[in-house]
């Protein structure tokens, strides 16, 4: 079985990130290329952080999702160059993150506002958080701690 490249992109957009299931692997910007190499579908995936344990799970999830759609010959390729950047998060991905309670990356080096109450009075608790891609912040108004998606 074969499918159009744009169809495959749509399918991939339904594969959730295992750590942040509210966004898809396409939203995350880690799918770098989808192409057919004769009868084999080639999917290039880039890791977010070099040691991110989710990377292996993501490759497995992608393969499972494509097999479920009837594709048989699939090659998942790791591509590290150019390195992943949070600039590749899609607009819809950023909006979904914020709605989920994770402040999206901001070039200022910290979250623009609290994802819960919208206050701009926020302070950093720790440069690292629950996954390699996040830092830990707190709102000084509503006092809720929240995750901030680090900007790299």
């Amino acid at each position: 079985m074969t499918a159009s490249v744009s169809q495959v992109w749509q399918w991939l957009d339904q594969v959730p990130d295992p750590e942040i299931p509210v966004i898809s692997v396409v939203d995350l910007g880690i799918i770098r290329d989808v192409s057919w190499d004769e009868d084999t579908l080639d999917v290039a995936v880039t890791p977010t952080y070099s040691g991110c344990p989710a990377t292996t799970v993501i490759s497995m999830d992608i393969e499972t999702a494509l097999r479920d759609r009837g594709l048989e010959k699939i090659r998942i390729r790791t591509q590290i160059s150019p390195p992943w950047t949070t600039d590749w998060l899609t607009e819809s991905g950023r909006a979904k993150l914020e709605k989920y309670g994770i402040a999206p990356p901001s070039p200022g080096g910290g979250p623009e506002k609290c994802p819960q109450c919208g206050s701009k009075r926020v302070s950093k608790i720790s440069q690292f958080g629950s996954t390699p891609c996040k830092a830990h912040w707190r709102c000084d108004d509503c006092l809720e701690p929240f995750d901030y998606f680090k900007c790299i």
């Binding site: 070099s50 040691g51 991110c52 590290i80 720790s126 440069q127 690292f128 830990h136």
Partner: peptide, 20 residues
């Protein structure tokens, strides 16, 4: 706890780089 998480995260980055 925050330092524990930070150290584990850094270790993870370093091991990931090691794999490459």
């Amino acid at each position: 706890l925050e330092e524990d998480i930070a150290l584990a995260n850094m270790a993870l980055d370093l091991i990931g780089q090691t794999q490459m």
